[in-house]
């Protein structure tokens, strides 16, 4: 359940921004979750609600934006939408690719008052 500590990171980020940007309430948080990021959206939604008590983001809405995984084959350099880290290249059939996109979890934006 590392989503809990990731949610705590989001909370810390929001508390810091509240001080520097001068807002008192967060209405919504847009979170980009990569398909290969080892974050389960349901677990994140649950953890998010649990850790935001007594912060500006208490009762904030969490909007999860799914970012598809993208990999590049090491053999033939073909790029494709990867679902699992052990997918083989649909072009040449080889295993072994570099993840180009989809490993990250990013706070994209906040709706603040």
């Amino acid at each position: 359940m590392h989503e809990l500590s990731l949610a705590e990171n989001i909370r810390d980020l929001i508390v810091e921004r509240a001080a520097t940007e001068g807002f008192r309430k967060v209405e919504a948080v847009w979170l980009e979750v990569g398909a290969l990021s080892c974050v389960e959206p349901d677990a994140m939604t649950f953890s998010f609600a649990a850790v935001m008590a007594d912060t500006p983001a208490q009762d904030a809405r969490l909007e999860i934006i799914s970012v598809p995984g993208e990999g590049q084959c090491r053999q033939c350099r073909h790029r494709w939408q990867v679902r699992e880290l052990y997918d083989c290249c649909p072009e040449c059939g080889n295993f072994g690719m570099d993840v180009v996109q989809g490993k990250d979890v990013r706070v994209k934006s906040l709706a603040v008052i």
């Binding site: 934006s109 709706a111 603040v112």
Partner: peptide, 13 residues
């Protein structure tokens, strides 16, 4: 509300 662009990886810290 106003929208604040953050664009920050939550593991950046």
């Amino acid at each position: 509300a106003r929208i604040l662009q953050v664009e920050q990886n939550i593991l950046s810290k």
